[in-house]
Write a protein that binds this DNA or RNA. Structure first.
Lengths: 217, 217
DNA sequence: GGTAAAACCAGGAATGCCCTGGGTAACCCG
DNA sequence: CGGGTTACCCAGGGCATTCCTGGTTTTACC
Protein backbone atom coordinates (compact mmCIF):
# COMPACT_ATOMS: atom_id res chain seq x y z
CA UNK A 1 0.00 0.00 0.00
CA UNK A 2 2.42 2.67 1.15
CA UNK A 3 1.65 6.27 1.92
CA UNK A 4 -1.29 7.60 -0.12
CA UNK A 5 -0.99 11.27 -0.96
CA UNK A 6 -3.23 14.03 -2.31
CA UNK A 7 -1.56 17.11 -3.78
CA UNK A 8 -3.31 20.48 -3.78
CA UNK A 9 -1.67 23.40 -5.58
CA UNK A 10 -2.94 25.83 -8.17
CA UNK A 11 0.22 25.49 -10.26
CA UNK A 12 -0.44 22.48 -12.42
CA UNK A 13 3.16 22.20 -13.51
CA UNK A 14 4.34 21.98 -9.90
CA UNK A 15 1.65 19.42 -9.09
CA UNK A 16 2.64 17.25 -12.01
CA UNK A 17 6.33 17.50 -11.33
CA UNK A 18 6.04 16.68 -7.64
CA UNK A 19 3.61 13.88 -8.35
CA UNK A 20 6.01 12.34 -10.78
CA UNK A 21 8.93 12.54 -8.38
CA UNK A 22 6.96 11.28 -5.40
CA UNK A 23 5.74 8.28 -7.36
CA UNK A 24 9.38 7.31 -7.82
CA UNK A 25 9.86 7.19 -4.07
CA UNK A 26 9.48 3.80 -2.43
CA UNK A 27 6.32 3.46 -0.40
CA UNK A 28 4.78 6.71 -1.57
CA UNK A 29 2.05 7.10 -4.15
CA UNK A 30 0.09 10.15 -5.23
CA UNK A 31 -3.56 9.20 -5.55
CA UNK A 32 -4.99 12.52 -6.77
CA UNK A 33 -4.31 16.18 -7.53
CA UNK A 34 -6.42 19.26 -6.84
CA UNK A 35 -6.10 22.74 -8.29
CA UNK A 36 -8.02 24.57 -5.59
CA UNK A 37 -8.96 24.16 -1.97
CA UNK A 38 -12.55 23.11 -2.46
CA UNK A 39 -11.60 20.35 -4.86
CA UNK A 40 -8.98 19.25 -2.35
CA UNK A 41 -11.58 18.92 0.40
CA UNK A 42 -13.89 16.91 -1.86
CA UNK A 43 -11.15 14.59 -3.06
CA UNK A 44 -9.88 14.10 0.47
CA UNK A 45 -13.37 13.11 1.55
CA UNK A 46 -13.68 10.60 -1.26
CA UNK A 47 -10.21 9.10 -1.22
CA UNK A 48 -9.21 9.49 2.43
CA UNK A 49 -5.49 9.84 1.70
CA UNK A 50 -2.89 9.54 4.44
CA UNK A 51 -1.39 12.93 3.69
CA UNK A 52 -2.53 16.04 1.85
CA UNK A 53 0.30 18.21 0.54
CA UNK A 54 -1.33 21.63 0.50
CA UNK A 55 -0.43 25.05 -0.88
CA UNK A 56 -1.85 28.08 0.93
CA UNK A 57 -2.64 30.47 -1.87
CA UNK A 58 -5.33 28.86 -3.98
CA UNK A 59 -8.47 30.15 -5.68
CA UNK A 60 -11.96 29.31 -4.54
CA UNK A 61 -10.84 28.11 -1.11
CA UNK A 62 -7.41 28.77 0.33
CA UNK A 63 -5.23 26.14 1.91
CA UNK A 64 -5.78 27.23 5.49
CA UNK A 65 -9.55 26.85 5.30
CA UNK A 66 -9.26 23.64 3.33
CA UNK A 67 -6.99 22.28 6.05
CA UNK A 68 -9.46 23.24 8.74
CA UNK A 69 -12.25 21.37 6.99
CA UNK A 70 -10.17 18.31 6.24
CA UNK A 71 -8.75 17.79 9.72
CA UNK A 72 -12.21 18.20 11.24
CA UNK A 73 -13.80 15.61 8.99
CA UNK A 74 -10.93 13.19 8.54
CA UNK A 75 -8.97 12.60 11.73
CA UNK A 76 -6.68 10.07 10.05
CA UNK A 77 -5.64 12.39 7.24
CA UNK A 78 -2.68 14.66 7.93
CA UNK A 79 -2.03 17.93 6.16
CA UNK A 80 1.44 19.05 5.14
CA UNK A 81 1.68 22.70 4.13
CA UNK A 82 3.92 23.39 1.15
CA UNK A 83 3.83 27.13 0.71
CA UNK A 84 5.83 29.95 -0.76
CA UNK A 85 4.75 32.12 2.13
CA UNK A 86 6.57 31.24 5.31
CA UNK A 87 6.07 34.28 7.49
CA UNK A 88 5.08 33.95 11.10
CA UNK A 89 1.41 34.57 10.49
CA UNK A 90 1.01 32.02 7.74
CA UNK A 91 2.82 29.30 9.63
CA UNK A 92 0.92 29.84 12.84
CA UNK A 93 -2.45 30.01 11.13
CA UNK A 94 -1.66 26.81 9.29
CA UNK A 95 -0.75 25.04 12.51
CA UNK A 96 -3.77 26.46 14.24
CA UNK A 97 -5.92 25.15 11.41
CA UNK A 98 -4.57 21.70 12.11
CA UNK A 99 -1.65 21.21 9.74
CA UNK A 100 0.81 18.58 10.95
CA UNK A 101 3.76 19.95 9.03
CA UNK A 102 5.09 22.95 7.16
CA UNK A 103 7.71 23.09 4.40
CA UNK A 104 8.42 26.23 2.38
CA UNK A 105 8.70 25.88 -1.37
CA UNK A 106 12.20 27.23 -1.35
CA UNK A 107 13.31 24.01 0.31
CA UNK A 108 14.48 21.04 -1.68
CA UNK A 109 12.58 17.95 -2.71
CA UNK A 110 14.43 15.81 -0.19
CA UNK A 111 12.97 17.80 2.63
CA UNK A 112 9.47 17.27 1.26
CA UNK A 113 10.01 13.52 1.32
CA UNK A 114 11.43 13.69 4.83
CA UNK A 115 8.40 15.67 5.97
CA UNK A 116 6.02 13.20 4.36
CA UNK A 117 7.68 10.23 6.04
CA UNK A 118 7.62 12.03 9.39
CA UNK A 119 3.93 12.76 9.10
CA UNK A 120 3.23 9.18 8.07
CA UNK A 121 5.00 8.08 11.27
CA UNK A 122 2.62 10.30 13.25
CA UNK A 123 5.22 12.96 13.91
CA UNK A 124 4.87 16.61 13.12
CA UNK A 125 7.45 18.21 10.88
CA UNK A 126 8.49 21.83 10.70
CA UNK A 127 11.20 22.91 8.32
CA UNK A 128 14.20 24.30 10.16
CA UNK A 129 13.74 27.56 8.29
CA UNK A 130 10.47 28.26 10.00
CA UNK A 131 10.81 26.86 13.48
CA UNK A 132 12.24 30.22 14.44
CA UNK A 133 9.02 31.90 13.45
CA UNK A 134 7.00 29.50 15.56
CA UNK A 135 9.19 29.94 18.60
CA UNK A 136 8.98 33.68 18.13
CA UNK A 137 5.23 33.45 18.11
CA UNK A 138 5.16 31.49 21.35
CA UNK A 139 7.52 33.85 23.10
CA UNK A 140 6.07 37.14 21.96
CA UNK A 141 2.54 35.91 22.23
CA UNK A 142 0.29 38.91 22.26
CA UNK A 143 -2.11 38.66 25.18
CA UNK A 144 -4.77 40.60 23.32
CA UNK A 145 -5.88 39.02 20.08
CA UNK A 146 -5.10 40.96 16.97
CA UNK A 147 -7.99 41.75 14.69
CA UNK A 148 -6.80 39.66 11.78
CA UNK A 149 -9.33 37.78 9.73
CA UNK A 150 -8.40 34.55 11.40
CA UNK A 151 -9.30 35.67 14.88
CA UNK A 152 -12.41 37.76 14.37
CA UNK A 153 -14.09 35.89 11.54
CA UNK A 154 -15.48 32.38 11.51
CA UNK A 155 -14.50 29.82 8.93
CA UNK A 156 -17.59 30.33 6.84
CA UNK A 157 -17.19 34.08 6.97
CA UNK A 158 -13.61 33.87 5.71
CA UNK A 159 -14.74 31.49 3.00
CA UNK A 160 -17.46 33.87 1.83
CA UNK A 161 -15.09 36.83 2.06
CA UNK A 162 -12.58 35.14 -0.21
CA UNK A 163 -15.21 34.42 -2.85
CA UNK A 164 -16.54 37.97 -2.70
CA UNK A 165 -13.01 39.28 -3.12
CA UNK A 166 -12.54 37.00 -6.12
CA UNK A 167 -15.40 38.79 -7.83
CA UNK A 168 -18.26 36.35 -7.30
CA UNK A 169 -21.81 37.57 -6.89
CA UNK A 170 -23.85 36.47 -3.90
CA UNK A 171 -25.86 34.22 -6.16
CA UNK A 172 -22.81 32.44 -7.53
CA UNK A 173 -21.37 32.00 -4.06
CA UNK A 174 -24.59 30.39 -2.93
CA UNK A 175 -24.46 28.00 -5.86
CA UNK A 176 -20.78 27.27 -5.25
CA UNK A 177 -21.31 26.45 -1.58
CA UNK A 178 -24.68 24.75 -2.10
CA UNK A 179 -26.37 27.18 0.23
CA UNK A 180 -29.27 29.58 0.06
CA UNK A 181 -28.65 33.10 -1.19
CA UNK A 182 -30.09 34.30 2.08
CA UNK A 183 -27.42 32.48 4.03
CA UNK A 184 -24.65 34.09 2.03
CA UNK A 185 -26.26 37.47 2.57
CA UNK A 186 -26.29 36.85 6.27
CA UNK A 187 -22.65 35.82 6.40
CA UNK A 188 -21.68 38.81 4.31
CA UNK A 189 -23.51 41.25 6.55
CA UNK A 190 -22.06 39.55 9.62
CA UNK A 191 -18.47 39.80 8.46
CA UNK A 192 -18.98 43.37 7.28
CA UNK A 193 -20.21 44.24 10.73
CA UNK A 194 -17.28 42.49 12.37
CA UNK A 195 -14.56 44.25 10.40
CA UNK A 196 -16.45 47.56 10.26
CA UNK A 197 -16.37 47.83 6.49
CA UNK A 198 -19.28 48.99 4.42
CA UNK A 199 -18.45 48.34 0.78
CA UNK A 200 -17.27 45.55 -1.43
CA UNK A 201 -14.25 47.64 -2.40
CA UNK A 202 -13.09 47.85 1.20
CA UNK A 203 -13.73 44.14 1.66
CA UNK A 204 -11.51 43.36 -1.31
CA UNK A 205 -8.67 45.47 0.07
CA UNK A 206 -9.08 43.86 3.47
CA UNK A 207 -9.00 40.38 1.93
CA UNK A 208 -5.86 41.27 0.00
CA UNK A 209 -4.12 42.59 3.09
CA UNK A 210 -5.11 39.43 4.96
CA UNK A 211 -3.79 37.20 2.21
CA UNK A 212 -7.19 35.71 1.42
CA UNK A 213 -6.88 36.73 -2.22
CA UNK A 214 -4.25 38.21 -4.46
CA UNK A 215 -4.20 41.41 -6.48
CA UNK A 216 -3.99 39.87 -9.92
CA UNK A 217 -7.41 39.50 -11.45
CA UNK B 1 24.26 17.01 -26.82
CA UNK B 2 20.62 17.97 -27.18
CA UNK B 3 19.01 21.11 -25.86
CA UNK B 4 20.96 22.59 -22.94
CA UNK B 5 18.79 24.32 -20.38
CA UNK B 6 19.26 26.66 -17.45
CA UNK B 7 16.44 26.92 -14.93
CA UNK B 8 15.89 30.05 -12.87
CA UNK B 9 13.25 30.03 -10.14
CA UNK B 10 13.38 30.96 -6.50
CA UNK B 11 11.41 27.85 -5.48
CA UNK B 12 14.06 25.19 -5.10
CA UNK B 13 11.52 22.41 -4.98
CA UNK B 14 10.05 23.46 -8.32
CA UNK B 15 13.53 23.78 -9.85
CA UNK B 16 14.49 20.32 -8.70
CA UNK B 17 11.26 18.72 -9.80
CA UNK B 18 11.30 20.27 -13.26
CA UNK B 19 14.97 19.52 -13.69
CA UNK B 20 14.37 15.89 -12.89
CA UNK B 21 11.47 15.60 -15.32
CA UNK B 22 13.23 17.47 -18.10
CA UNK B 23 16.28 15.23 -17.80
CA UNK B 24 14.00 12.30 -18.57
CA UNK B 25 13.00 13.89 -21.86
CA UNK B 26 14.96 12.79 -24.88
CA UNK B 27 17.32 15.43 -26.21
CA UNK B 28 16.89 17.79 -23.28
CA UNK B 29 19.34 18.26 -20.43
CA UNK B 30 19.37 20.77 -17.61
CA UNK B 31 22.88 22.10 -17.18
CA UNK B 32 22.34 24.39 -14.20
CA UNK B 33 19.85 25.94 -11.78
CA UNK B 34 19.64 29.47 -10.41
CA UNK B 35 17.67 30.75 -7.43
CA UNK B 36 17.65 34.39 -8.40
CA UNK B 37 17.99 36.57 -11.47
CA UNK B 38 21.56 37.71 -10.98
CA UNK B 39 22.80 34.15 -10.61
CA UNK B 40 20.85 33.27 -13.72
CA UNK B 41 22.61 35.97 -15.73
CA UNK B 42 26.03 34.86 -14.48
CA UNK B 43 25.40 31.18 -15.15
CA UNK B 44 24.01 31.96 -18.59
CA UNK B 45 27.16 33.91 -19.39
CA UNK B 46 29.37 31.03 -18.28
CA UNK B 47 27.45 28.12 -19.72
CA UNK B 48 25.76 29.69 -22.72
CA UNK B 49 22.73 27.38 -22.59
CA UNK B 50 20.30 27.10 -25.48
CA UNK B 51 17.30 28.02 -23.36
CA UNK B 52 16.78 29.70 -20.01
CA UNK B 53 13.52 28.79 -18.27
CA UNK B 54 12.86 31.88 -16.20
CA UNK B 55 10.43 32.83 -13.45
CA UNK B 56 9.49 36.49 -13.15
CA UNK B 57 9.28 37.00 -9.42
CA UNK B 58 12.75 36.36 -8.02
CA UNK B 59 14.90 38.03 -5.38
CA UNK B 60 17.98 40.07 -6.17
CA UNK B 61 17.07 40.56 -9.84
CA UNK B 62 13.67 39.84 -11.32
CA UNK B 63 13.09 37.70 -14.37
CA UNK B 64 12.25 40.57 -16.71
CA UNK B 65 15.51 42.39 -16.04
CA UNK B 66 17.50 39.18 -16.15
CA UNK B 67 15.96 38.41 -19.52
CA UNK B 68 16.87 41.85 -20.83
CA UNK B 69 20.49 41.35 -19.85
CA UNK B 70 20.74 37.81 -21.18
CA UNK B 71 19.27 38.48 -24.62
CA UNK B 72 21.51 41.50 -25.03
CA UNK B 73 24.67 39.61 -24.22
CA UNK B 74 23.88 36.18 -25.61
CA UNK B 75 22.05 36.31 -28.92
CA UNK B 76 21.99 32.52 -29.24
CA UNK B 77 20.34 31.94 -25.88
CA UNK B 78 16.56 32.06 -25.79
CA UNK B 79 14.49 32.84 -22.72
CA UNK B 80 11.25 31.03 -21.89
CA UNK B 81 9.16 32.72 -19.22
CA UNK B 82 7.52 30.35 -16.74
CA UNK B 83 5.52 32.55 -14.46
CA UNK B 84 2.57 32.44 -12.12
CA UNK B 85 1.58 35.91 -13.25
CA UNK B 86 0.09 35.89 -16.72
CA UNK B 87 -1.68 39.21 -17.01
CA UNK B 88 -1.25 41.36 -20.08
CA UNK B 89 1.27 43.60 -18.46
CA UNK B 90 3.62 40.83 -17.40
CA UNK B 91 3.41 39.04 -20.71
CA UNK B 92 4.04 42.17 -22.73
CA UNK B 93 6.91 43.30 -20.53
CA UNK B 94 8.48 39.88 -20.85
CA UNK B 95 8.19 39.90 -24.63
CA UNK B 96 9.47 43.44 -24.80
CA UNK B 97 12.45 42.39 -22.71
CA UNK B 98 13.24 39.78 -25.32
CA UNK B 99 11.65 36.56 -24.10
CA UNK B 100 10.96 34.10 -26.89
CA UNK B 101 8.16 32.27 -25.11
CA UNK B 102 5.72 32.48 -22.23
CA UNK B 103 4.06 29.65 -20.31
CA UNK B 104 2.06 30.21 -17.12
CA UNK B 105 2.72 27.89 -14.20
CA UNK B 106 -0.86 26.78 -14.16
CA UNK B 107 -0.18 24.91 -17.40
CA UNK B 108 0.94 21.33 -17.46
CA UNK B 109 4.42 19.92 -17.86
CA UNK B 110 3.72 18.78 -21.40
CA UNK B 111 3.22 22.34 -22.48
CA UNK B 112 6.57 23.30 -20.99
CA UNK B 113 8.28 20.62 -23.08
CA UNK B 114 6.42 21.74 -26.17
CA UNK B 115 7.48 25.31 -25.56
CA UNK B 116 11.11 24.28 -25.08
CA UNK B 117 11.18 22.30 -28.31
CA UNK B 118 9.56 25.19 -30.18
CA UNK B 119 12.16 27.64 -28.90
CA UNK B 120 14.94 25.23 -29.78
CA UNK B 121 13.58 25.16 -33.34
CA UNK B 122 13.83 28.95 -33.44
CA UNK B 123 10.10 29.48 -33.06
CA UNK B 124 8.44 31.60 -30.45
CA UNK B 125 5.89 29.97 -28.19
CA UNK B 126 3.01 31.57 -26.37
CA UNK B 127 0.68 29.46 -24.28
CA UNK B 128 -2.83 29.42 -25.66
CA UNK B 129 -4.06 30.85 -22.38
CA UNK B 130 -2.24 34.11 -23.01
CA UNK B 131 -2.18 34.51 -26.76
CA UNK B 132 -5.56 36.17 -26.49
CA UNK B 133 -4.13 38.86 -24.27
CA UNK B 134 -1.20 39.47 -26.58
CA UNK B 135 -3.27 39.55 -29.75
CA UNK B 136 -5.67 41.90 -28.05
CA UNK B 137 -2.74 44.10 -27.13
CA UNK B 138 -1.27 44.21 -30.61
CA UNK B 139 -4.50 44.65 -32.50
CA UNK B 140 -6.38 47.13 -30.40
CA UNK B 141 -3.56 49.37 -29.37
CA UNK B 142 -0.30 50.47 -30.79
CA UNK B 143 2.43 48.12 -29.66
CA UNK B 144 4.43 51.04 -28.32
CA UNK B 145 1.74 52.31 -26.03
CA UNK B 146 0.51 50.28 -23.12
CA UNK B 147 -3.13 49.85 -22.28
CA UNK B 148 -2.90 51.08 -18.76
CA UNK B 149 -5.80 52.86 -17.18
CA UNK B 150 -4.39 56.13 -18.37
CA UNK B 151 -4.66 55.28 -22.04
CA UNK B 152 -7.82 53.22 -22.41
CA UNK B 153 -10.02 55.11 -19.98
CA UNK B 154 -11.12 58.70 -20.17
CA UNK B 155 -10.47 61.15 -17.39
CA UNK B 156 -13.96 60.87 -16.00
CA UNK B 157 -13.84 57.11 -16.12
CA UNK B 158 -10.57 56.99 -14.19
CA UNK B 159 -12.05 59.40 -11.68
CA UNK B 160 -15.12 57.25 -11.19
CA UNK B 161 -13.02 54.09 -11.06
CA UNK B 162 -10.88 55.48 -8.29
CA UNK B 163 -13.86 56.48 -6.21
CA UNK B 164 -15.48 53.08 -6.70
CA UNK B 165 -12.22 51.42 -5.66
CA UNK B 166 -12.10 53.62 -2.58
CA UNK B 167 -15.39 52.20 -1.44
CA UNK B 168 -17.83 54.89 -2.43
CA UNK B 169 -21.33 54.03 -3.51
CA UNK B 170 -22.67 55.29 -6.81
CA UNK B 171 -24.84 57.74 -4.95
CA UNK B 172 -21.95 59.24 -3.02
CA UNK B 173 -19.84 59.51 -6.14
CA UNK B 174 -22.67 61.40 -7.84
CA UNK B 175 -22.84 63.79 -4.92
CA UNK B 176 -19.07 64.15 -4.81
CA UNK B 177 -18.82 64.99 -8.50
CA UNK B 178 -22.08 67.01 -8.60
CA UNK B 179 -23.52 64.71 -11.24
CA UNK B 180 -26.60 62.59 -11.64
CA UNK B 181 -26.56 59.05 -10.31
CA UNK B 182 -27.42 57.91 -13.79
CA UNK B 183 -24.31 59.51 -15.20
CA UNK B 184 -22.11 57.69 -12.75
CA UNK B 185 -23.85 54.46 -13.57
CA UNK B 186 -23.15 55.06 -17.22
CA UNK B 187 -19.47 55.79 -16.68
CA UNK B 188 -19.18 52.71 -14.52
CA UNK B 189 -20.73 50.48 -17.14
CA UNK B 190 -18.55 52.05 -19.83
CA UNK B 191 -15.32 51.49 -17.99
CA UNK B 192 -16.30 47.98 -17.01
CA UNK B 193 -16.88 47.23 -20.68
CA UNK B 194 -13.52 48.73 -21.64
CA UNK B 195 -11.43 46.73 -19.20
CA UNK B 196 -13.55 43.59 -19.57
CA UNK B 197 -14.30 43.27 -15.87
CA UNK B 198 -17.65 42.34 -14.44
CA UNK B 199 -17.52 42.91 -10.71
CA UNK B 200 -16.56 45.59 -8.24
CA UNK B 201 -14.00 43.23 -6.74
CA UNK B 202 -12.18 42.91 -10.04
CA UNK B 203 -12.37 46.67 -10.55
CA UNK B 204 -10.73 47.24 -7.20
CA UNK B 205 -7.89 44.87 -8.01
CA UNK B 206 -7.46 46.53 -11.40
CA UNK B 207 -7.38 49.98 -9.81
CA UNK B 208 -4.77 48.79 -7.33
CA UNK B 209 -2.59 47.30 -10.05
CA UNK B 210 -2.86 50.56 -12.00
CA UNK B 211 -1.94 52.62 -8.97
CA UNK B 212 -5.25 54.45 -8.85
CA UNK B 213 -5.77 53.42 -5.26
CA UNK B 214 -3.80 51.63 -2.58
CA UNK B 215 -4.47 48.45 -0.66
CA UNK B 216 -4.84 50.05 2.74
CA UNK B 217 -8.46 50.66 3.56
C1' DG C 1 -28.31 18.67 29.66
C1' DG C 2 -28.21 23.42 29.36
C1' DT C 3 -25.93 27.37 27.27
C1' DA C 4 -23.75 29.80 23.63
C1' DA C 5 -22.05 30.31 19.24
C1' DA C 6 -22.14 29.22 14.62
C1' DA C 7 -24.51 28.09 10.58
C1' DC C 8 -28.63 27.97 8.18
C1' DC C 9 -32.92 30.07 5.92
C1' DA C 10 -37.29 33.30 4.79
C1' DG C 11 -40.09 37.55 3.69
C1' DG C 12 -40.56 42.07 2.44
C1' DA C 13 -39.07 46.77 1.87
C1' DA C 14 -35.49 49.50 0.04
C1' DT C 15 -31.84 50.15 -2.70
C1' DG C 16 -28.83 49.68 -6.41
C1' DC C 17 -27.56 47.85 -11.02
C1' DC C 18 -28.17 47.10 -16.04
C1' DC C 19 -29.87 48.23 -20.46
C1' DT C 20 -31.92 51.11 -23.90
C1' DG C 21 -32.12 55.36 -25.69
C1' DG C 22 -31.46 60.17 -26.24
C1' DG C 23 -29.23 64.93 -25.87
C1' DT C 24 -25.25 68.47 -25.85
C1' DA C 25 -20.69 70.30 -26.50
C1' DA C 26 -16.03 70.05 -28.25
C1' DC C 27 -12.93 68.61 -31.57
C1' DC C 28 -10.71 67.10 -35.94
C1' DC C 29 -10.64 66.93 -40.78
C1' DG C 30 -11.67 66.97 -45.60
C1' DC D 1 -18.75 74.62 -43.27
C1' DG D 2 -20.97 70.12 -42.82
C1' DG D 3 -20.10 65.56 -40.99
C1' DG D 4 -18.02 62.34 -38.04
C1' DT D 5 -16.12 61.20 -33.58
C1' DT D 6 -15.69 61.36 -28.76
C1' DA D 7 -16.50 62.61 -24.17
C1' DC D 8 -19.92 63.78 -21.20
C1' DC D 9 -24.55 64.07 -19.37
C1' DC D 10 -29.20 62.18 -18.08
C1' DA D 11 -34.02 59.34 -17.79
C1' DG D 12 -37.12 55.26 -17.38
C1' DG D 13 -38.14 50.72 -16.30
C1' DG D 14 -37.12 45.91 -15.35
C1' DC D 15 -34.44 43.16 -12.67
C1' DA D 16 -31.19 41.72 -9.12
C1' DT D 17 -29.23 42.60 -4.84
C1' DT D 18 -28.95 44.28 -0.27
C1' DC D 19 -30.71 45.31 4.34
C1' DC D 20 -33.43 44.25 8.29
C1' DT D 21 -35.96 41.40 11.28
C1' DG D 22 -37.18 37.28 12.39
C1' DG D 23 -36.56 32.04 13.40
C1' DT D 24 -34.54 26.84 13.33
C1' DT D 25 -30.93 23.52 13.45
C1' DT D 26 -26.39 22.08 14.48
C1' DT D 27 -22.22 22.02 16.99
C1' DA D 28 -19.19 22.70 20.84
C1' DC D 29 -18.40 23.00 25.55
C1' DC D 30 -18.73 22.93 30.12
Amino acid sequence: MGIRILIADDHKILREAITSLLNNEIGISVVAEAGDGRTAVQLARELQPDIVVMDIIMPNLNGIEATRQIVRELPHTKVLMLSEQSDRRCVCEALRAGAAGFVPKRCGFDELVTAIRNLAANHTYLSSEITGAVVDEYIHRRPDQDNSAYSVLTGREREVLQLIAEGMSTKKIAKELHLSVKTIEWHRSQLMKKVHLKSVAELVKYAISEGLTCVSV
